[in-house]
Amino acid sequence: MEIPRHWRLKKQRYGLVGEVCPHCDAKIFPPRDVCPHCGGEAKTAFNFSGRGEVYSYTVMHDAPAGFDQNTPYAVALVKLEEGPVVTAQLTDLGEEQPRIGMPVEMVTRKIREDANERGMLIYGYKFRPVLR
């Protein structure tokens, strides 16, 4: 089990909390210690809207351990409306096929168990087709 490493990321994972660079105003996700745009120190929390569109996607059939009971599932690069691109699962697709350019919105979902059925539940961001 890796409780501390998941626990310390809860804000990022549950709510897509990233950073805004106090020097150049760049929006950053995932959070970094140094702004990739201006090289300044980046530490100010920023809540992303959760809206974006699919930049690319895959449907996973051979999954890594911990995810293999959920196949097939889609993972995408999602370009957020504030600029950054984030890797995340697509969920609630129903009969819809994922496509590049699909408008999506963030939801908080179960990612997996930590280790096994005795471990903690790990929650985090996924994206789904915009509800309305």
Partner: peptide, 17 residues
């Protein structure tokens, strides 16, 4: 990796694009 992406999945994201 915590999104369930594998190395083949990374390659697939590139190939799809």
């Amino acid at each position: 990796a915590m999104t369930g992406l594998s190395s083949a999945g990374q390659a697939a994201l590139l190939m799809q694009r």
